[in-house]
Design a protein around this nucleic acid. Structure first.
Lengths: 331, 331
DNA sequence: CTGAAAGCGCTTACAG
DNA sequence: CTGAAAGCGCTTACAG
């Protein structure tokens, strides 16, 4: 690779000091620099194809204008949609994004934190997995700006952005009840993740019947979803509705209902969580809880930039969801 | 934010030079450093919570161990799946990834290139949009390692990784023909993008009837897909099959076929491109051309790392696809 | 076995 | 209006 041209090359080319080049290119000391010198420097920068070295600038300024984004899995549409919005907003504010996927593992999260700290990110936006108190405390301990997003730990005071999961689930179940469903099954993950517990609680507070719960192990997704649905269908009073607390669970469940030949919504009404094309193409378009992605992402970034500019103050933002009602849940 | 601890702090704490700390922590000059000094330094690094500053190291070494990934849109499942695989492979090789979305715009691509060059990425993996010859030449001109991925410009000698688009489309159409379909419509984008032209050519070389082509404007997706399907259904001999050259086109088209109440595959057989959950949940699971994501991504990274280590030599990799046959195309 | 020193490419307080 | 110089946190050739 060719040697990249530095500020020194530009200075040499024009016959001025590097300081002057820096001032001109950064529009510092406006008006206190001769027009001619400024013009010559700008021209030389173009002629020589000068690209400022952000690495050197970062070392000096102690600021990289980079943020670290830790998601569960960038290949998951929820994460990648969020990433896209954060990317755009960050760019507008002069920031770049380095991302990493934790696979819901606290250890991988810790590794990513180290890796991103190495790279001197100015702050983090992170969706924390289960049992990550240690990582949370680490971040708080080194006193770096960060905001918890999607999931948060209510015991610890942090910046966070989340939806009202309890209310979202509650609305979904109320909707099913209002449409005459009596036996509503809930399919969720077996997990201590606060946001998922809240979704579960929002549903079960209304349902009050633990035999209608299916708790899926994340690493046995298909197996447990299928077995759970089998069980719910064979109850003395079989379920007439299913509420899935995530889109992966819903997709897996809908595939299985298809295999079984169960008709939606005639036999079973269905409500899912999150948007996906798959819900549109199902023969009865699927009712779902819509998360306001735009707000989730842009608020996360806003809180982080606030925290970078003004460490100390902690903000929490809770956003409402919307229930998009379609054919899968009304008969 | 607290001041981060530097190599100098560690040196001071132990009472040695920064040089020695650097040697120990980087396992340089093994065996030529006293066990005691080494042990004390390592312990101090842990006690003080030392995290090496990759920025400083990069400035010195002229290498950031960062790669720039430019995709069309990270929110698109194709891009995000690729990103995930590249992330994992990169991490294994000590690299981080900074990504950017071009939205199929040559100008945005150029901005991203500048932005990533600012950040001194060691190389690029880029899915180039249409009319980006200028950007391609720019990359080649500054002599930075890069590999074109998904799309390439056959006129220019570069590193590239792509699937055999012609063959993939050809197989799809042959499959429809083998299943007795006589009037096969092809829905594709109106574009000069090489990979899409190849898909189109692979289909039309077999079909030889331009009235069966629908050329969708990317910024009028739904409108043009719907109108195109309308037209194909009203031909004197209406189509009995549709081949969609991308997953977005297929999803849009399937939604419209649903609206019209057209039965798949009874009235119209369908083949799509790329994997998506939506294809699984369609009442007749959709036959599709499966791209080998794993290979595409990991080969791209491999070629880039090769190019970084050994500039000059150019490699091209073409990978075969697989047609996954399901109910939507067989009657 | 260890350290002083230069240098990566910038920025900026200071001096003139 | 402009420049010499220090310093950000590392690495490494050189000297001892």
């Amino acid at each position: 690779m060719k040697k990249r041209v530095s500020i020194k090359d530009v200075a040499l080319h024009v016959g001025v000091s590097t300081a002057l080049v820096s001032y001109v290119l950064n529009n510092k000391k406006e008006g206190r620099i001769s027009k001619e010198a400024a013009a010559k420097i700008r021209q030389a920068a173009i002629d020589l194809n000068y690209v400022p070295n952000q690495i050197a600038r970062s070392l000096k300024s102690q600021k990289t204008n980079t943020i670290g984004l830790i998601v569960a899995d960038i290949a998951n549409p929820f994460s990648s949609q969020i990433a896209r919005i954060i990317e755009d907003e960050a760019q507008k504010n002069g920031y770049s994004v380095i991302f990493g996927s934790s696979d819901e593992s606290a250890d991988k999260t810790q590794n990513l934190i180290f890796l991103l700290l190495n790279r001197q990110v100015d702050g983090f936006i992170v969706a924390l997995p289960e049992n990550a108190e240690k990582q949370l405390n680490y971040l708080a301990g080194i006193d770096i700006p960060f905001v918890l997003f999607d999931r948060y730990y209510p015991e610890v005071e942090t910046n966070f952005v989340a939806i009202d999961n309890y209310k979202a689930a509650s609305q979904a179940v109320q909707h099913l009840m209002a449409n005459g469903r009596k036996q509503i099954g809930i399919v969720t993950y077996q997990t201590g993740l606060h946001h998922l517990s809240e979704r579960k609680r929002g549903a079960t507070d209304l349902i009050q019947n633990t035999s209608l719960e299916v708790n899926v192990r994340i690493d046995h997704l298909k197996e447990d979803v299928d077995a759970g649905i089998d069980r719910l269908l064979k109850l003395d009073t079989p379920v007439d509705a299913l509420f899935f607390t995530t889109n992966l669970l819903a997709i897996s469940g809908l595939k299985y209902l298809n295999e079984l030949g169960v008709k939606v919504p005639e036999q079973i009404a269905v409500v899912g969580f999150d948007e996906t094309d798959a819900f549109d193409l199902f023969y009865s378009p699927v009712t779902y809880v819509k998360q306001p992605m735009e707000q989730l992402a842009s608020q996360s970034l806003r809180l982080l930039l606030d925290a970078i500019d003004n460490p100390g103050a902690k903000q929490g933002v809770v956003i409402d969801t919307e229930l998009v009602v379609r054919k899968s849940s009304v008969s």
